[in-house]
Amino acid sequence: MTAKFVWMTLVLGREQDIQFGLLLAASQKWTHRVPWMSTTRWDKAKVAAIAQELKDKPGALMPVLRRVQDELGWVPAECVPIVAEVLNLSRAEVHGVLSFYHDFRRDPPGRNIIKVCRAESCQAMGGVSLAEHIKRRLGCDFGHTRGDGSFTLEPVYCLGNCACSPAVVINGQLLGRVTPERFDAAISELDENLL
């Protein structure tokens, strides 16, 4: 199940590293949780509990939506009335915020989430053709999830890794100096269960 964290070494692009990388990544404490991988349905009580827990923070709506997405992987429309009720906001207000921020997903994502930086520094380092390659490789366009639910491809505008352009994030793991070959190698290493 940890294979999705592995391709850290892949940036180096040497085949012999891959197995080593697998072992190492398994013990990393710096891996990012991707709990939505296991969440197929969402739980109203959980959403209400999150909102309850955070409601006394000033400007609580953003932290609440953030946490809901962290827990569920997305923010179903049905959450909106629950959050609105707890925070004493209108549904419209919650919806307005939800739809403003590109991070918030209003549909369930695929099992693997690929983010590709499309900003200038990465453009200067071949990011445009890399993005084209990734679209072809994953078989889906930016902002979409592949029909089989295996991948969601999201554009991102700067990851702050401009000194290591072009940059890509695969399931929360940041990758620098990505080439089409390295990207393909990383994807092929993803756990088959998740594909």
Partner: peptide, 9 residues
């Protein structure tokens, strides 16, 4: 009443 908002941006 806060019934209205903007969808998207």
């Amino acid at each position: 009443t806060y019934a209205l908002t903007i969808d998207g941006r």
